[in-house]
Amino acid sequence: MHPPRAAFLDFPLGHTAGRPDDREGQRAILAAALGAFEVLVEPGGVLTLPFSWSEDDAWKDTLATSVGDARGARDAAPQYQDEADRARAEAAMAAGGCPGCVFLEA
């Protein structure tokens, strides 16, 4: 990644835009992030957002090694969140196609 403008939030992986079910916190983070469009004036600038996940940062002791890419076996079958999603998608495909799916191969 080397975007023209970036905002950095020092939250655990998988929480790029805030905590779950935290409407006010998510709003504050987004509003601050959108500020990057107006305050950054040089290519490659990074705005660090003034929010913390918790008071003591103890989460950093365990998270770095307990999550992330473990290079497990991966195949080309769709990985559904649940079986109801699979049923809906397969019904859509049988009826003519997946709405909004763009399948790309290189």
Binding site: D75, P78, A84, R88, A89, A92, G100, C101, V102, L104
Partner: peptide
């Protein structure tokens, strides 16, 4: 993705999903 769409696979899936 949106329910009703085909989920991503995990072997270099370079497709995307259009979500209203």
């Amino acid at each position: 993705y949106r329910t009703g769409q085909v989920a991503f696979h995990h072997r270099d899936d370079i497709g995307f999903r259009v979500i209203d």
